[in-house]
Amino acid sequence: MSEQATQEQTDERIEIVSFAIGEQAFCLDIGHVLEIRGWTNTTTLPHAPDYVVGMMNLRGAVLPVIDLSMRLGLGKTIPESRHVIIIAHIDEKSVGFLVDAVSNIITVNTDEIKPTPEVSSSRTAAFIRGVYTLDDTIVRAIDVHQIMPQEALSAA
């Protein structure tokens, strides 16, 4: 019986990677994160949305780098060597997220997540799954599926 209880508890505990964009803290489920790299130059894509920085070469694989700050409406990042790219695997695709810095890997309980405040911005509602409160910091959980570039672009 006690075994079952433990089982339930561990099921609810997940690890998240928290990172900073500007003054704000965000996080993703660690299951999506493949690796974390320093900034490398990217190749500009024609006709790409403004939040797609370009394509990067990850050991022979070509993958897009998304400026998360721009994607979340927090202003364009001018990439420098201090910036970090989080390589994530989402919906069968590999993608790099350009962020300011990776802060920590934290274990949280899934039920600790609180709903996103009902703010007016549709972007907030679409991209933020909810928030965790950790040591007085609000960490915003990103909805990785929504944050990916949407295919509709090329069909337009």
């Binding site: 130059n41 190749t43 894509l45 024609p46 993958l63 897009p64 695709k93 570039p149 090329s154």
Partner: peptide, 23 residues
Amino acid sequence: EQNYQSIPGIAAATILGNGKIAL
């Protein structure tokens, strides 16, 4: 398309000798 999507005017990408990507 594998990691991104098709781009108008661009067929694919390649990696150059210096490791940079060329479309």
